[in-house]
């Protein structure tokens, strides 16, 4: 979408306010789901609505500064993660994961969705980010490395270590493969 915009308007400075708003709305319509999921799997909270809004507002404010060096998705994803990390800092959430003892062992009726949320919270933010991009949003290692601006090997390593911790957590809480 932005590449087309660049083709039509070599400089975004030439785009009128209304044209820019239309481009922005088109992007929102096309990719809001990706932004929302990326944030939600990090925070696991109903605050996701506010964080999505904040992401798009920040993106709008710096929209004309977008330099097209990365894809627009990468650019807005980085904004979404900055918003998410600011949220963690504001709410004084430990940035290295909770590692708390989960009480699900004594409660066999626990919802699997809650268990998954808790499992994600045992991961460090870096692991959680890579894990959710790969397993929940379906991105390949190369795409993750581009999005996070890290080497492919690092992306693989983060996903792998996160998977081990997460699966161990599930097993400890009575989730077997067949469940």
């Amino acid at each position: 979408m932005l590449k087309l915009a660049k083709l039509l308007f070599p400089s975004l400075e030439e785009v009128t306010h209304d044209e820019l708003l239309l481009l922005f709305k088109n992007y929102y319509t096309a990719d809001e789901g990706f932004v929302r999921s990326s944030i939600y799997w990090m925070v696991n909270s109903s605050d996701v609505d506010d964080l999505v809004q904040e992401t798009f507002l920040r993106a709008w404010k710096s929209f004309r500064k977008f330099d097209n060096k990365s894809s627009f998705r990468t650019w807005i994803y980085r904004i979404a993660m900055n918003v998410t990390y600011d949220y963690f800092k504001k709410n004084k959430v430990h940035l290295e994961g909770f590692n708390e003892e989960y009480v699900g062992k004594e409660n066999p009726e626990i919802e699997l969705s809650d268990l998954i949320s808790k499992g994600l919270m045992t991961l460090s933010l870096e692991q959680r980010e890579a894990f959710s991009l790969h397993y929940q949003l379906g991105l390949k290692y190369l795409e993750i490395s581009e999005l996070l601006q890290i080497p492919v090997g690092t992306a693989k390593s983060r996903v792998s270590s996160a998977k081990k911790i997460f699966v161990d957590f599930l097993n400890e809480n009575g989730v077997e493969n067949e469940r």
Binding site: K25, R36, L57, S113, I116
Partner: peptide
């Protein structure tokens, strides 16, 4: 076993109001 909450229908309107 997991899903992301859907966006409120008025979300874009709210963003546009702030823009």
């Amino acid at each position: 076993n997991s899903s992301v909450p859907r966006a409120p229908e008025t979300q874009w309107t709210q963003i546009q109001k702030k823009i």
